[in-house]
Write a protein that binds this DNA or RNA. Structure first.
Lengths: 228, 228
DNA sequence: TAAAAACATTGATCTATATCAATATTATGG
DNA sequence: CCATAATATTGATATAGATCAATGTTTTTA
């Protein structure tokens, strides 16, 4: 069984809003604001008051938990996905993780009280939200497995495949992430990322031109991802 | 911030059933069966058809994902908790993880179609289920952080504290888990568990008598858990 | 209760990967 | 466009923890 599927990049259908009536949609529109974030800006802060859930419209966002200087990236969010659903939990009024923009991003901040109200009122909406939460869990569990059970080559191969497939949707892409950011995502040191990328290039698995990466042998990359 | 909270042992309030009407409760009663499992028996199998969600009434259960021979324990479930909520996801009709009994356990298998029906019908029930899913996520994220960012001493300290606090609810307990099972839980080799337990004993942090473990200095253990 | 199997312990190695240090390259602000 | 900072690269070294191997102990089973 391939480990890759939905490993690092959350790509949920997020069909919950389709379940709302026109009236409910109108209510929700009134109870949200659209905000633009620059590269590097914090969208949600672990521990701060969660007055809203976040719908990412444009850009690329990392979701992570932090304890002091240590951080763990839980997932990357591309447009069309929600952040902060785990703060819907009763008695939990703070964000359980942080989110930050990798690049210029636009998000809608939806009032959490209204969101909760709609869950109570609209069973189909609620069940769609439950779907998304379940998908989130599965994605994070896969990433958990990958980071704990795969060695560095496998983890980096996995990350490159995820980025190619789910973020850039192409085998060749301009990677505006630093080596340090790649390292953080793959759970290893920056130097190790560099050495492994070099090795992948020597083995004709990728073609590196500065920030541009082309996956040259997806099958072999997939094998590294699955086995190592 | 302490990493321990809800790290390995899921201990959700699981108040969702209180939200049901008498009628709905009666319906659910009819649509469930009670099953007893012996030590080691599989309660749910990753990839198999998820026709039900599982409510643990008695015993101790591990929830884990497996790829071939490799396994990753996501959490330990004590009585009063649900397993399989992530299979409520639309279009997902298989278990996304396995569950097995550590000891003789009793569980109720609740028909998933009825469960889904109640979510649609009863908004409060739905929101309680969402609460549980959110708590589950937070617990697994904490465990994810612990296993990836803490060294072996910290991970084992964390595990002992979790077991003491949440499973046995005592500083002294009869541990009917093998060293291999502890190793699996703390994400390390069996030999390493043995060596670290020995070190803990030498440092007067624990008192080991066969299977009986007494945490002798909780504060120091907590410090190891937080720092290492 | 004897034999077999499972589990626990100890010591000796091996290795993946982090860390450290030095240098090269690229980006950025005045 | 230069200066300075940030990032990337390379090599050398250190180490946590796995793996291997051998032995002792407990549990199960026949």
């Amino acid at each position: 069984m391939a480990v890759r599927t939905s490993c690092t990049v959350a790509d949920n259908h997020c069909k919950c809003f389709e379940a709302l009536t026109e009236e409910q949609t109108a209510l929700l529109e009134k109870k949200q604001v659209t905000v633009e974030y620059n590269k590097g800006e914090i969208i949600a802060k672990h521990g701060s008051f969660a007055s809203h859930v976040i719908f990412v419209c444009e850009g690329l966002v990392k979701v992570y938990i932090e304890h002091g200087k240590e951080i763990l990236i839980l997932k990357i969010i591309s447009p069309g996905n929600l952040i902060g659903l785990s703060s819907l939990t009763e008695g939990e009024d703070t964000f359980q993780y942080s989110a930050a923009a990798y690049q210029r991003s636009i998000a809608k901040l939806i009032d959490i009280t209204t969101f909760k109200h709609l869950i109570r009122e609209n069973g189909l909406f609620a069940s769609r939200v439950i779907s998304i939460l379940g998908e989130n869990s599965n994605q994070i569990n896969n990433r958990f497995f990958c980071l704990t059970h795969r060695q560095s080559y496998g983890r980096l191969a996995n990350l490159l495949l995820c980025l190619s497939e789910r973020v850039f949707k192409s085998e060749q892409f301009e990677l505006d992430l630093t080596r340090k950011e790649l390292a953080e995502l793959a759970g290893m040191s920056t130097e190790n990322v560099i050495r492994i990328l070099k090795k992948f290039q020597e083995d004709d698995l990728i073609i590196l031109k500065g920030k541009n990466i082309e996956l040259h042998n997806i099958d072999a990359m997939q094998r590294i991802c699955d086995l190592g």
